[in-house]
Structure formats: C-alpha cells, structure tokens
Amino acid sequence: MAPFSGRSDRRTGPALASYRFSWRVFDVLEALAAQWPARAMGLVKWFLLLPALLIVGLLIFGLVVMADASFRVMDFRTYQLSEHYSTANYVRLWGWGAFWATLWRSLGAALLVTLICLVLAFPYAWALTRTPNRRLRRVLLVGLFLPFFVGQVVRAYGWLVILGYEGIVNKALAVFGLGPYRLLFSYPAVLFGLVQYMLPFAVLMLMPALAAIPEEIERAAASCGASPLRAVLRVILPMARPGLIAAALVVATLTLTDFAMPAILGGGTNDFLANLVHDQFFRTSNAGLGSAIALVLTFLGTTIAGLLLTRAGTQAFGLRGTS
C-alpha cells in the first residue's frame, strides 16, 4: 500500500511544488490505512457507518428518554416528574377529546395533502423531465427550487397577507362587490398552506423516477395503440411507483408532524399533534404528557412509513433484495 514511491522526489525541485496538498492528505490517510490490521478489515464498514449510527443512536437515546418521561406523572405542586412509573399519561390521552381531535385532524391532513400533492406534482415533474424546451425547463426548475429559499413560517405569513380579511384576494373580490370573506384560520386554510409547502418536495421526489423511464417506453405504448392517457395510467404510473411512494412517504410524514402551518393559519382551533406536544412541553410544562403524545406521533409516522414500504417493497426505491 505504498502511497507514493518517490518520497524524496516530493522534497526537491519542481516535483515538490506540483504535489498538491490534497494528495498529501490522501497519502497520510493511505499510510494510516496501511497500518490497519488485515484481520480487522471487516470493521471498516462499521467505521464508515459510524456517523450515521451516531445520529440514529442519539435519536434512539432521545426516544428512550422520552419513553421514560412518558411513564412518569407531573406533580403540579412541585413541577417534578414522579419517581414511580405509571401509565397515567396514556390513560389520560385515551380519554382526552382534544388529543383525539388533533390526532384525526393530523392524520386527515397527512392523507389529503399527500393525495393532492401527488396529483399536482405528477404533471409538473412530468413536464420538467420531458420538455425539450430549455427555457420552460429553466422556469419550471426555478419554480421548483424558489420555495426552498423561503422558509415555511415566512410562507405562512405570506398567506396571511394574501388571504387576510383585508388581504389581496378580498380586495380583488371587493372590486366585483363581493366579500370580504374569512379565508384564513380554518382547516382548509391549513391544508392549503401545507399543499403549497409540500408540493416542491413531492416534485423533487418524483422527478428522478420519471426521468428514469425511457421515452421509448411511451413511444412503444403509443405504437401499440395506447392513447396518451392510457399510456400514463397503464405504463408510466406503474413504472413511476418508486417516485410516487417516496413522494407520499415524505409528504405524509412531514405533514403529520407539521407545526407551523396549523399554528399560523389555523387560528388556534386547528392544531395538529405537534402543536399539542409543544403546548405540553412549553405551555403547561408537562413533560410526561408531552412525551406520551410525542411517542404516539412517532409511532404514527413510523407506522405510515412502514405501511408504505411494506406495500411498495424496498425494491420500489431501487434497493436490492426483497423487503
């Protein structure tokens, strides 16, 4: 594993000057690697996985801490969690109407926003990957990436300006003698904001899948007599399944755990589970109940992801092996 045969060459003359710093770094790394015992080569893959394992490990550690807290009850005379374990927080959740209302609202939003985003994202991603017009592609790309430069909270506040009682839309309607209407602070307003926020994610996840489908396939379908609609429904959509599953996975889980849109566009009466978690931790300082809700939320998100992956199989993402 001699990294470089001419060590002395590097110290003299033009060879030294031309020898790049990055090469030197790699020389050192290779020299270090050469010291690695051959018998321990099997450990290399674990070392490479170490950063990811650390991150996942921290996540699991956090979940364990939260699981521990979720089985302890807050004593509001001392604001300390109980020493003993109990299922009281989960029992309380079971009988708490606000919890069920926010749970169904969150799940409903995850489903609706995902469906709407997939329907809207597909033609956008299709146009982006198929258009021969370079200018149109550029416009579509700008339209796709621009929202990522504007944070979710800023976008939500933008909707307040546009859809507010004295906002742009109501002012435009007033020209025709209509309104003003209350367009904000409702469940549809939250869904609207979420769709607008999630759509770029869906397009981004769909694009590679659609780009991977050869255009010849479409021509073949057409030559076999399939109408464009039939070709999309029977050929393209099934082939785009990895992208659709990936987009659904991202949009559904992000929507399920969203905090800002319900907080800003919901008017305080359309909270999601994440808002309820925040309230328990920061408003009532009830870390026990907050942890219990957070774990339920994590369980729901994981279940949705698991169901999608089970349904589609990991090979849907182009991974080897079976699910």
């Binding site: 606000a98 009466t269 909270d271 309820l276 309230d279 009532t284």
Partner: peptide, 9 residues
C-alpha cells in the same frame, strides 16, 4: 388548559 383545549379543538 386541557379543558379549554378539549372544548376549542
């Protein structure tokens, strides 16, 4: 807070 949320949510 829990009662208020229960009613309003």
């Amino acid at each position: 807070f829990a009662r208020f949320k229960e009613i309003m949510q």
